[in-house]
């Protein structure tokens, strides 16, 4: 068994996470929030939870985003401190670096100032800011350096803003899977691979609807999935039922089947997105009770992400008077 996955060093962290997990918002409380008559009421219910401190300083319900962001950042940093191998948490934080880079690149090419950056990535904001401003990426980690240089080259060539996102997304998932492979963690590798597959399935359907060609699909598909790019490319252009048929026997069968049914009925991929998240939650839940492993850490991080997603959904829904049903059908399963 690889050292990263199983180690007594995790015992302490797992113990603390058991305690933290208890404070996650449970289904009952979410139900109460969905049934709340106004966004203010939702905030009141949130005040009974871990979010009390973050939500206390809010001037209006519309400003909830920074509070959620701070909560998320707090969780990540807390876990990084307690994890015997902080680099694992760094892996999860990479997403925020990539987000910051995308925003900085776009702002640079637009000639504006980038806003809405995450302050808790692995790389400091001034470092990223300087690197992008000067288009000098020597200070970045080697693999990211290549990706950033590629972004700069590509944009100089085509001035296509989508390319920025595409290159950096590809880098992110490439990095996630290869790093977890290098660390020797099968669990993480599998988790990220599943993520890649689910994103690729969704991208496949989205691109087919938009009507892009096969070459573009090839450019957008993320690498390292369990379903290789060939699988998608061969199916591209055929009916979506065929995709569902091909996947039916595999682990993604049920979620793709139901997601596509919903898509055909209502032209909305919301169901597929929800089921994809639930699928990953279920995957993580299986490892939840491993006493000496990183499963509990990853599970807790994911649970927090889902919790925040749900809170956002409820708050936005309440502010815009979305019917309860519409909120409920998009709610992600609780990890508990």
């Amino acid at each position: 068994m690889p050292a990263v996955d199983r180690s007594y060093a995790y015992a302490y962290a797992v113990g603390r996470i058991r305690a933290l997990e208890r404070r996650l918002i449970d289904r009952n409380r979410f139900n109460r929030m969905i049934e709340a008559p106004s966004p203010e009421e939702v905030l009141k219910i949130l005040a009974e939870t871990e979010y009390a401190a973050a939500m206390a300083g809010l001037e209006s319900v519309y400003d909830f985003e920074p509070a959620l962001r701070d909560e998320l950042g707090r969780s990540y940093l807390e876990l990084k401190k307690m994890s015997p191998r902080p680099e694992i948490i760094d892996l999860f934080l990479l997403r925020f670096d990539i987000h910051n880079l995308k925003a900085l690149f776009k702002a640079r090419y637009l000639g504006t100032e980038a806003e809405m950056l995450y302050s808790f990535g692995t790389l400091s904001l001034p470092l990223l800011r300087e690197a992008v401003a000067a288009l000098d990426f020597r200070e970045l980690p080697p693999r990211l350096r290549c990706a950033a240089a590629q972004v700069a080259d590509e944009f100089a060539l085509s001035s296509d803003s989508q390319a920025i996102d595409l290159i950096l997304d590809r880098f992110l998932y490439d990095e996630l899977v290869s790093s977890s492979r290098e660390m020797g963690s099968h669990f993480l590798e599998e988790f990220f691979q599943k993520q890649v597959d689910l994103i690729n399935i969704k991208t496949f359907i989205r691109l087919q609807r938009i009507g892009r060609d096969r070459a573009f699909l090839q450019k957008v598909l993320l690498p390292h999935g369990r379903l290789g790019p060939e699988f998608f490319i061969a199916l591209y252009g055929n009916s979506l039922e065929q995709l569902a048929g091909e996947l039916a026997a595999g682990e993604y069968g049920p979620l793709v089947g139901e997601g596509l049914r919903h898509w055909l009925e209502r032209k909305s991929l919301a169901r597929l997105e929800k089921l994809s998240d639930d699928f990953l939650t279920a995957f993580l839940q299986r490892g939840k009770h491993t006493p000496f492993g990183l499963e509990a850490l990853v599970g807790y991080l994911w649970a927090r992400e889902m919790e925040i997603k749900n809170i956002r959904l409820i708050l936005v829904g309440k502010i815009n008077r979305l019917p309860q049903e519409a909120i409920r059908e998009r709610m992600r399963h609780a990890y508990l």
Binding site: D160, Q162, D165, L166, K202, R212, L269
Partner: peptide, 18 residues
Amino acid sequence: EGEEGNIYPYGYADTSAE
């Protein structure tokens, strides 16, 4: 700007289909 006929300025990995 950029690719012909493309109105979507973002990547597909972390954006919602909606």
